[in-house]
């Protein structure tokens, strides 16, 4: 199975995950500071800054794009509950 590597900069942890994993699933397990509320892509609590490797995430859905716009999210930010890792190496930070 294809793998990806995610570094959670706020806690100094790098973790190998299967491709297709959502950021929030990993963040929760390693205890990083990316917190969540609804886990359905609506509340924007899990807004995450993609420090590098943005291209390794699946494109945002229409709903995610709308929520990012409504919450004035800066560029290179995604919802951790929606963003799926496709491969490669990412570095992320809580927004």
């Amino acid at each position: 199975m294809p793998k990806a590597s995610i570094t959670f900069q706020d806690i100094g942890v790098t973790i190998t995950v299967p491709a297709g994993t959502r950021l929030i699933e990993v963040s929760e397990k390693v205890g990083a500071g990316i917190v969540y509320g609804c886990r359905e892509g609506e509340c924007c609590t899990c807004l995450t800054r993609i420090v590098s490797g943005h291209e390794h995430l699946a494109a945002p859905s229409v709903l995610e794009q709308q929520v990012l716009r409504d919450n004035l999210a800066p560029r290179r930010h995604r919802l951790a509950c929606q963003a799926q890792v496709l491969g490669g190496c990412l570095v992320v930070q809580p927004a």
Binding site: G12, T14, I15, T16, K29
Partner: peptide
Amino acid sequence: HLLGRPTPRTLDLAQIS
């Protein structure tokens, strides 16, 4: 961690699931 010098750790999701 508070001093900004956490010991880096490398994990595999399969090991902590």
